[in-house]
């Protein structure tokens, strides 16, 4: 399989059926190592399905998913997360009984070098590693201004903070590619501006690629360098924001949704 060295992720002729129903077909996507790519489309266009194919929640029935040049189809979701793909969920999925701190701690489990025996017997290296974990959580929380709520139960936070925590939790897995599923959903105008600042900060500070599903055009057009448009599981357009804004088939897809 050949893959351009500059791309972190490539979907090649990717498709998936659910019981005879085609959800996504012949999808081609390429994401460069520092890209901030947007994915838009009407409801039910298959955007979240694409995320689930990339992260191994669903297995594509056709085509391949290349991450860093390696086909990751068939790997389990935790293995894919281990390789360096982090994600958030459309309907926030923080661990409800854990604090903000602990939610992020879960992401660092995969970086631990000492597991069961060290933890149960508290061997010397255990304490060393726990200190390192703590330091990196605190550092992340400071960057994203969440230190003051670190010991609050994550699901008790205001909505915007929960979205932010989920992004931080995904970042803590040290991804090379971050998938954000409608991060602006349910946010007010101020929060959206703050979110855009945050996404830019993530990209610059952590030097990673981001694939963003978003309904809010202001957010997508405001931060993405390139946008992919899906409709009925098919890519109908791809290009920079201005080109997408004036693309006839995109306008039609969205008008169709409004007319229905």
């Amino acid at each position: 399989m050949n893959s351009a060295p500059g791309n972190i992720l490539e979907l090649k002729a990717c498709g998936i059926n659910f019981g005879g129903l085609t959800a996504v077909s012949a999808l081609e996507v390429a994401i460069g190592r520092r890209d901030l790519l947007g994915m838009i489309g009407p409801n039910g266009a298959g955007k979240t399905t694409v995320f689930n194919m990339i992260t191994g929640v669903y297995q594509p029935t056709k085509g391949s998913v290349l991450f860093d040049g390696r086909n990751i189809v068939g790997l389990k979701p935790y293995q894919i997360a281990g390789l360096g793909i982090g994600r958030t969920f459309q309907n926030i999925r923080l661990f409800p009984s854990l604090t903000v701190y602990e939610n992020i701690q879960v992401s660092l489990v995969k970086t631990l070098r000492h597991g069961f025996s060290h933890s149960t017997l508290q061997l010397p290296r255990f304490h060393e590693e726990e200190r390192a974990v703590r330091a990196s959580i605190v550092e992340l929380l400071e960057i994203f201004n969440l230190t003051h709520v670190m010991n609050e139960r994550a699901t008790s936070l205001p909505y915007g903070d929960q979205r932010r925590t989920e992004i931080v939790r995904a970042l803590a897995t040290k991804p090379q590619l971050l998938l954000l599923d409608e991060p602006a959903a349910g946010m007010n105008a101020t929060e959206k501006v703050e979110l855009m600042r945050l996404i830019r900060l993530v990209k610059e500070r952590f030097d990673i690629a981001i694939l963003l599903i978003e309904h809010d055009m202001k957010v997508v057009m405001g931060i993405c360098e390139r946008i992919i448009v899906l409709d009925y599981g098919i890519k109908i357009a791809e290009g920079p924001p201005e080109a997408i804004r004036n693309n006839l088939s995109v306008i039609e897809a969205y008008l169709g949704e409004q007319a229905a």
Binding site: V106, V109, L112, H118
Partner: peptide, 23 residues
């Protein structure tokens, strides 16, 4: 322990736990 937080993650939400790299 940090390692043990994996148990709680599995209990709370398996899909999210997997997405964070938890086996």
């Amino acid at each position: 322990s940090s390692y043990g937080k994996g148990f709680l993650a599995v209990r709370d939400d398996e899909i999210a736990a997997q997405a964070m790299g938890i086996n």
